[in-house]
């Protein structure tokens, strides 16, 4: 079922158009993907470090989360747009790649933690230590796993 969707995507007109583009566009997509990764990781690391009692101590974790909220959104838009640009022309080739599915699973959990769990932890100016530390460690681990799994996609395909 899902395989059929991937086949349809790869055989679509948009996949054909992207596939015909010069390689330079693929390189641009990679740069946007890295820019997105930097924006997301920086926001996650700044807030997580603050929750662990390190980093930018001049601001509270809540203030940092508010300040970096737009960075995460822009970063995710960059990641999604450039990721789709790279995936669409070769969707059927990527389908059997276990690293892709591992990345998507980790990404889904990371997003739930980022936009769901954070509401509870970052609701108060001084969250409970156990919640703050657990959230920070889980969030850091998940986003690092997403990054490593993303890099693994290229090696698994090779």
């Amino acid at each position: 079922m899902l395989k059929d969707v991937f086949d349809v995507v790869q055989n679509s007109h948009i996949a054909y158009v992207i596939g015909q583009l010069n390689n330079i566009w693929g390189i641009f997509a990679q740069f946007f993907h890295i820019a997105g990764l930097i924006l997301v990781l920086l926001s996650v690391v700044l807030v997580s470090l603050r929750l662990l009692g390190f980093g930018l101590l001049a601001q509270s974790a809540v203030q940092l989360a508010y300040l970096t909220r737009s960075w995460i959104l822009v970063g995710l838009i960059f990641l999604a747009a450039s990721g789709l640009f790279m995936l669409i022309p070769s969707a059927s080739l990527y389908y059997p790649n276990p690293a892709l599915w591992f990345k998507f699973s980790a990404l889904a959990v990371a997003l739930v933690v980022q936009f769901g769990l954070s509401r509870y932890v970052l609701k108060q100016e001084h969250p409970r230590k156990l919640y703050a530390v657990s959230y920070a460690l889980i969030s850091l681990t998940l986003w690092f796993v997403v990054g490593l799994a993303g890099r693994a996609i290229g090696f698994m395909a090779a």
Binding site: I38, L41, L42, F144, G147, R151, A152
Partner: peptide, 12 residues
């Protein structure tokens, strides 16, 4: 992978 992630964070 670690090279890319550590560079991304330190660059950030």
């Amino acid at each position: 992978g670690v090279h890319l992630l550590s560079l991304s964070i330190s660059f950030g």
